[in-house]
Simulated assay, not measured.
Amino acid sequence: MTQIVLGADGAVHLEPLKPPPDPGPHDVLLAPVHIGICGSDVHVLRKVHPFITPPVITGHECVARVLSTGDAVTSCAPGDLVVVNPLHSCGKCPACLRGATNLCSSAKVLGFGLPGLARDRVTVAGRFCHRVPAGVPSRLAALTEPLAVGRHAVSRAPAEPGRILIIGGGPVGLAVLLAARGAGPITLVEPVQAKRDLAAALGADRVLSPDETPPDADTTFDCVAAAPTLATAARSTTPGGTIVVVGVPHDATEVALPRLQRWEIDVRGTGLYRGEDIDAVLAGPPADAERLITAEFPSGRAADAFAATTDPDQIKVLIGWPDPAA
């Protein structure tokens, strides 16, 4: 058995994996079926992530088959397909007790602060496993984590967002688009033509390149969080509007505070998701979300999968394992 490790040498390695022990009473033994590669995973590999330094076992976007469970597990059963919530919160602090597990101060994420899920076999606590409903294909379920990011981001916006601007058309920006469809007219700004084309196909009312001036927006989702995109967000959001910062900034970034103060523009952060977001996505994943998947490689070609992410036309690259239930 093997595991996929992002090495300190900047390369992707397949390393031997010792068979995990039998699950404890609250644990689940899993066989991953699909792992999605996130931009943050690539940042770790390139040693530009602000918090994580390789080597690290990668993998946080995971759908897996349950092989066995401990006696106390009620979230799933052997044979089930599950999505793993990679945000491992303590379950005991005030934030966790009120359901805000993404605000747990001691939470760690698999594949970053904890060893990831890109292993032939892996044991996790059963409380982090969400059963995939019958009829949801495993490839679509593999998108649950980024779709949950999008859903949670939209939940941070006003209930009536009005005119919507999304800056960035990568996986997260497109996930926000999918979650915001029907809430108001949507404009999406993205430099890559293939991603603009997909955004239009997924329901954006208008798609623009960054050198075009976006229309005024009541709610802006910045899915990049760089100085130029935050400046665009501040200019484009109307008085009394809201900016939701979805992208992960690499460091402190200047914002147009005088404009925000004068025109009472709210700036809200959004961090990851909660279990309820994962459950909501699994209960009704948009079938056309599978269009976000642009390439898939077997686990033995993990290095090729990461190399593929350098192509700007790629959106979501998956790494796959044989499904034990097939």
Rank of each mutant, 00 (worst) to 15 (best):
A227G: 04
L257C: 04
V246S: 08
V154Q: 00
A194R: 14
R235P: 00
G240Q: 05
A179V: 07
V244N: 10
V189L: 04
R121L: 15
P258W: 09
G135Y: 10
A226Y: 07
A226V: 12
G173I: 09
A226C: 04
D211N: 15
D211K: 12
G170D: 02
A179W: 08
C223F: 09
P161R: 10
V255L: 13
P191D: 06
E190G: 02
C129R: 11
L177W: 04
G168E: 08
A180P: 00
A141V: 02
V255R: 10
A231I: 04
P158W: 07
G203N: 06
V248M: 15
A234I: 02
T242V: 09
L147K: 09
T220G: 02
V149A: 12
L198G: 01
P215R: 08
A225F: 14
E190A: 05
L147Y: 10
V154S: 03
L178D: 03
R196A: 01
G247T: 10
A141I: 01
V245I: 15
G126H: 14
A148S: 15
V207Y: 04
P191E: 06
A179G: 12
G241Y: 10
L140N: 08
H130S: 08
V136E: 06
D218V: 01
L202Q: 03
P158N: 07
L165E: 09
P161H: 09
A134I: 08
L188W: 01
V122Y: 11
D197H: 04
P161A: 10
A141H: 09
H152M: 05
A194K: 14
S155M: 14
D211R: 12
T213I: 11
R206W: 03
V132Q: 03
I164N: 00
P210A: 00
G150R: 07
I167N: 09
H130G: 11
L140C: 14
C223A: 15
I166V: 15
R196F: 06
L188A: 06
V124R: 07
V192A: 09
L140H: 09
L174A: 03
E190H: 01
G126T: 09
P214A: 05
L230Q: 13
G203T: 10
Q261D: 03
G240E: 07
P249M: 02
R235E: 13
A183P: 00
T229E: 10
V149T: 13
E160A: 15
P249Q: 05
A134K: 15
V154M: 01
D218L: 02
V224N: 06
G162E: 03
V149W: 11
D205M: 09
D218A: 15
L140M: 12
A148I: 10
T238F: 02
L260S: 11
V154K: 00
A180T: 04
A175C: 05
A233S: 14
L174C: 00
G241H: 12
L147H: 10
V172E: 03
R121I: 05
R121A: 08
G240P: 05
R235M: 04
A204P: 00
T237F: 11
D211S: 12
L140F: 14
P249T: 02
L177P: 06
G247R: 12
R181W: 08
A225I: 12
V172F: 03
A180R: 03
G173V: 13
A226F: 05
V189C: 08
C129S: 02
G247V: 13
A252Y: 11
E254K: 13
I166M: 09
K195N: 01
A157P: 08
P249R: 06
